[in-house]
Design a protein around this nucleic acid. Structure first.
Length: 503
RNA sequence: GAGCCAUUAGCUCAGGCGGUAGAGCACCGGACUUUUAAUCCGGGUGUCCUGGGUUCGAGUCCCAGAUGGCUCACCA
């Protein structure tokens, strides 16, 4: 059986035997057929004059002229001495008309051997069929790549979510809306750059491998550098490096790149994800608010043509200004509890427990506030909202609010129940920063694996003097979810992290 | 990590009360020179996720496991 199969594969069939079925075998046999006719079934470059959509859209000018395009065969309709094929390239789909009259007996017979999925280069005259479809009347064609596996069904496409994620290339081939989504994602990133570049921000690249993982509360991935013989951590945030650049005088910087967090996977979390972080010297968190709302609205309008979007059936207006509410007020609004009036930590913990929040038992009043806030924010907030003034305790890199030192000049962005970003006035007091690190280290010692580590070099940088600044981080994947109405982060990642298949 | 659900042909899916597996597309053979989910005639191509168990008999019932989805927990 195995011998027979590999013979059919022309002695070169190194495909996994487990995977070979009759459909694949039939296509392997066709490989030989093409070779027998002197055609290399895996061809070389092909001179393309047009893309499919250019021919369709530009029919009035192109009618009667000869064009050559290349793409994948998506459908085949034989009619005896003539046949229709649909081929698709990046721009879209176009119909091919093939007839014995035009191609000649030999070429026409060869054309009938094409399978759906094959990649071909074609040449012919542009015309319109009786039914009105812009088509190319083939005068010649070239097989550019033989497809050995059958494509998923044309009508339903590839529905199996697992296969769509694991074999994204197939998803892209048969589900056009998926390709459109990733084009949108690319545009989103492009317009973020355009917006920031236009305002004098410099795009930079800082290390992805950190000796001390910092800038966020999260567990990192560990790796090892052999020559240096040190452990390195995939970055959980670029923040501390970008702020070193502020010290260095790069007053407006941003970075769009990957972060890595060794935590759970869910519809909102992938182990690697993309953020844009922005730092602006001589600004503060209020400047970051207007930067945020203007940037997100600009991106939405540029990509979708409107600042009013629909997510999960809810209509959301991204037009600035967005609502601003302090965390204390938000919690008061949702629960009726005014944390400013609470006397003791114990009282706050009691309230949290009554609200069904599990606590360790040593939480402070402000930590309780934060817990209560996090428990409600994701389902309460639909329209774009800046929730401001988080407790300093949970904001170890943010500046204390002048009005009330228990709180930080900070905000989080919520839209459609999803946390989209985080920003604050950057803490530039090295003495205060060092104290914050010290208490984070204490929390870590007490068992909080996500508490920050001491970063002496970062403190030293601050000691040279960092201008006051506003900093902002936005989840690009989350923003893409929002702007493409995607319920899962996996839908906006080309290759979401999956458990490797063992079979 | 916990709960619920799913897994049947290459793809999309049906399979009542346990009786040896079915459709559409794709594919193979035939007809057809402007079709377009082409049409017409003929052909079912299978580790029913895996491993145990119950039973005369398991796609179906029970147990364990794998993978995925959703919800929760953690986070952005």
């Amino acid at each position: 059986m195995q011998a027979a199969q590999s013979q059919r594969a022309g002695g070169r069939g190194e495909l996994d035997m487990e995977d070979i079925n009759d459909l694949v075998r039939a296509r392997m046999e066709k490989l030989q057929l093409w070779r027998a006719r002197g055609v290399d079934p895996f061809g070389i470059r092909y001179e393309v004059t047009h893309r499919a959509a250019e021919v369709v859209d530009g029919f009035d000018k192109l009618e009667g002229s000869i064009v050559s395009i290349a793409g994948r065969v998506m459908a085949k309709r034989g009619h005896g001495r003539a046949a229709f094929l649909d081929i698709r390239d990046l721009s879209g789909k176009i119909q091919l008309y093939a007839s014995v009259d035009e191609l000649g007996e030999e070429l026409y017979q060869l054309l009938l051997e094409l399978d759906i999925g094959d990649i071909v280069g074609v040449k012919g005259k542009v015309f319109r069929t009786r039914r009105g479809e812009v088509s190319i009347n083939l005068s010649s064609f070239t097989l550019l790549s033989k497809s050995l596996r059958p494509l998923p069904e044309k009508w339903h496409g590839l529905q199996d979510v697992e296969l769509r994620y694991r074999q994204r290339y197939l998803d892209l081939v048969v589900n056009p809306e998926v390709r459109e989504l990733f084009v949108k994602r690319s545009l989103i990133v492009r317009y973020i750059r355009e917006f920031l570049d236009a305002r004098g921000f410099l795009e930079v690249e800082t290390p992805m491998m950190h000796p001390i993982p910092g800038g966020a509360a999260a567990r990192p991935f560990v790796t090892h550098h052999n020559t240096l013989d040190i452990d390195l951590y995939l970055r959980i945030a670029p923040e501390l490096y970008l702020k070193r650049l502020l010290v260095g005088g790069l007053e407006r910087v941003y970075e769009i790149n990957r972060c890595f967090r060794n935590e759970g996977i869910s519809t909102r979390h992938n182990p690697e994800f993309t953020t844009v972080e922005v730092y602006q010297a001589y600004a503060d968190y209020t400047d970051m608010m207007s930067l945020t709302e203007n940037m997100v609205a600009f991106v939405a309008e540029s990509v979708l043509g409107t600042p009013v979007i629909s997510y999960g059936g809810k209509e959301v207006d991204l037009t600035p200004p967005w609502r601003r509410v302090t965390m204390v007020d938000a919690v008061k609004e949702w629960t009726g509890i005014d944390f400013n009036e609470l006397e003791s930590d114990a009282q706050a913990r009691e309230i949290c427990s009554r609200q069904g929040i599990e606590l360790k038992g040593n939480e402070s009043k402000w930590k309780c506030l934060n817990e209560l806030y996090e428990a409600h924010a994701d389902y309460r907030i639909v329209q774009p909202t800046f929730v401001t003034h988080h407790p300093v305790e949970v904001s170890p890199l943010a500046k204390k609010s002048a009005a009330d030192p228990d709180f930080a000049d900070r905000f989080e962005i919520f839209i459609c129940g999803q946390e989209l970003g985080n920003a604050f006035s950057e803490l530039n007091d090295p003495i205060d920063q060092k104290e914050r690190f010290v208490s984070q280290v204490a929390e870590r010692a007490a068992g909080d694996e996500e508490a920050h580590l001491m970063d002496e070099d970062y403190v030293r940088a601050l000691e040279y003097g960092m201008p006051p600044a506003g900093g902002l981080g936005i989840g690009v994947d989350r923003l893409t979810m929002l702007l493409t109405d995607s319920p899962s982060i996996r839908d906006v990642l080309l290759f979401p992290q999956m458990r490797p298949r063992t079979d």
